[in-house]
Nucleic acid binder design. Structure first.
Length: 213
DNA sequence: CAGTCGATTCACT
DNA sequence: GTGAATCGACTGA
């Protein structure tokens, strides 16, 4: 059986473009996460671009480290980081190898496997909140550092795939400053979301943490 | 090797 | 709106 057009997996070429071009183009795409518990599918509604070593907001800003090395590798792979001692966040590496571009997946609408996502997101007050925020998205999909480096393209795509989906019309794509990014990195409008979508997370400026006593 | 802080979320006022 | 939770990565000495 031929796959429906909107169920076609995105190829490596899709990700092998400048990250600022790929990021808005990811809206409306469908991320599939397979696991032993079952599949979950997510329609992406909010992303942020991180533009490599020249971007002060990026984990790649100070060069390659053990944590961020996947960002420097080939496009079409998953970069997962652990933050605030509790949470994971998930990116898709974009752009040519060595450029360290990545797109943070900030929010989406769970379009399949909601029952499973609810079990992992007990604090969610409605299904709109299952993946409303990058750490919530990763929690709903059961993503952690063990999945860092996963390939999302071709035969080796496991446990993720990204399908063509239905991108929003260009006039429905909004952009603005990235959430929680400090200093100069905060000025660029490199956050992209689908206009008026209820699963998009609220914007917050960077908040410096109070000093511990 | 100690100090600092984070691409956040949640409970509570 | 405010503050706590919680720990690994990175920095600079």
């Amino acid at each position: 059986m031929i796959a429906a057009p909107d169920r076609t997996p995105l190829t490596r070429d899709f990700f092998d473009r400048p990250v600022l071009e790929v990021a808005p183009d990811l809206l409306g795409r469908v991320l599939v996460r397979d696991s032993e518990d079952g599949p979950i599918e997510l329609r992406l509604t909010e992303v942020e671009a991180y533009a490599g070593e020249a971007d002060p907001g990026s984990h790649a800003y100070r060069g390659r480290t053990p944590r961020n090395s996947v960002m420097f590798g080939p496009p079409g792979h998953v970069y997962v980081y652990f933050t605030y001692g509790m949470w994971h966040c998930m990116n898709l590496v974009c752009g040519p190898e060595g450029m360290a571009g990545a797109v943070l997946l900030r929010a989406g609408e769970v379009t399949a496997g909601a029952e499973l996502a609810r079990k992992r997101r007990l604090s969610a007050r409605s299904d709109k909140e299952l993946a409303k925020g990058p750490a919530r998205l990763a929690t709903a999909l059961d993503v952690d550092r063990s999945l860092d480096g996963s390939d999302v393209c071709g035969e080796k795509a496991d446990p993720f795939m990204v399908l063509t989906g239905t991108p929003p019309r260009p006039d429905q794509v909004s952009s603005g400053p990235r959430t929680g990014v400090a200093g100069e990195g905060g000025v660029h409008p490199w956050r992209f979301w689908t206009a008026n979508d209820p699963t998009v997370s609220p914007y917050r400026a960077h908040t410096p943490r109070r000093r511990r006593t």
